[in-house]
């Protein structure tokens, strides 16, 4: 991926996003519940949380397309409510809805969104080509947007969002339905933007994407329950993580789930990830329990904590009471 051409990035240090007491209700439903958020300039900030946690509502308020019920939020120091004209030229917002013109071709959609965002004519073509190549859309430039597959529609939306080189990208599950090859390309593009000093706020259901963020926040019930770097968040899960391999991983999972000291067990592909919070050395304990149950080809090894485990731990209702107050991690 060639380096993206640059315009001067905003100075580091200042907060790209600052929200205080941000709240949004829909009738009786509280979608965002008095939320405080600081996103440093230059961060790749991941928003995680169960479905319905308030991620999309938060992003829509920051993108100035939805007014808060209460509280305030600024983007590069400008209010998203009273100074929208100062905010919108600097942001690129990608929603979960398909927002392209269905009867325009890929190239025409790129041209159109570049024009309304004031991208110069000379720049438009090169930039469109780079972005479409980077996302594997270059073969489809003449196809009408409505005839693209689901993942290609996502990629086209991202490409149009990037045309005007926004300082802040607000991405609401941009890689949902996107294939693994394109997802890698997409994160390569984000890495390039990050290296260039841009700020990215991205909601994602992919835990491997969460690992790549510089900061993450875990939302639930319209509030931020945890935030910090991926390592800081991982450190909050008590216990040790082990990986169990076996001829029949599902049978192995059922066995280890019943072993005293095991907090949780889940399948990740064809291995079982086990969270252990008991005393002693878990590896021999698990191995002997599996052998006694007749599970064959057993391997047990300690692994570094992963975000999937962290997510499951934070989303588990039984752990919610334990840390109901959001802890502020130093950043």
């Amino acid at each position: 991926m060639p380096a993206l051409p640059t315009t001067p990035a905003p100075p580091p240090g200042a907060d790209a996003i600052r929200a205080r007491g941000l709240r949004r209700t829909f009738g009786d439903t509280v979608a965002v519940d008095g939320l405080d958020l600081d996103v440093p300039t230059g961060a790749v900030f991941g928003l995680l949380g169960p479905d319905g946690a308030g991620k999309s509502t938060l992003i829509r308020m920051l993108a100035t397309v939805l007014a808060p019920t209460a509280g305030e939020a600024t983007v590069f120091g400008h209010s998203v409510v009273t100074e929208r004209d100062a905010v919108t030229p600097r942001i690129g917002y990608m929603s979960q809805r398909f927002s392209m013109y269905p009867d325009l071709s890929v190239a025409e959609n790129m041209e159109f969104f570049a024009t309304i965002r004031g991208v110069g004519r000379a720049d438009r073509r090169t930039r469109a080509r780079q972005l479409l190549e980077g996302m594997g859309l270059d073969e489809f430039t003449t196809r009408q947007a409505q005839f693209l597959s689901g993942g290609m529609k996502q990629k086209l939306m991202l490409a149009t969002t990037l045309m005007h080189r926004p300082d802040l990208l607000l991405l609401d599950e941009p890689t949902t339905g996107v294939d693994p090859v394109s997802r890698r390309e997409f994160w390569r593009i984000l890495a390039g933007l990050h290296a260039d000093g841009r700020t990215v706020l991205v909601a994602t259901p992919y835990m491997d994407e969460a690992e790549r963020c510089t900061h993450i926040a875990f939302l639930d019930g319209g509030r931020i329950r945890q935030h910090g770097t991926p390592d800081e968040i991982k450190a909050k899960v008590p216990g040790r993580l082990l990986e169990v391999t076996a001829a029949d991983p599902r049978a192995a999972m059922a066995v280890v789930d019943g072993v005293a000291g095991v907090t949780s067990a889940h399948l990740l592909g064809d291995v079982v990830r086990v969270l252990w919070d008991g005393a002693g050395d878990p590896a021999p304990t698990l191995a002997s329990a599996l052998a006694a149950a007749g599970v064959r080809d057993v391997g047990v090894r300690p692994v570094a904590p992963d975000m999937e485990t962290v997510f499951a731990y934070l989303a588990d209702p039984s752990t919610r009471a334990a840390d109901a107050e959001p802890e502020v991690a130093a950043s």
């Binding site: 949902t176 259901p205 399948l267």
Partner: peptide
């Protein structure tokens, strides 16, 4: 793509149903 955009915990529960 039955689990497109679904959170990790809900995806796991869904796969239990498929099994």
């Amino acid at each position: 793509e039955p689990t497109s955009g679904v959170d990790p915990v809900a995806r796991r529960q869904f796969w239990d149903l498929l099994y």
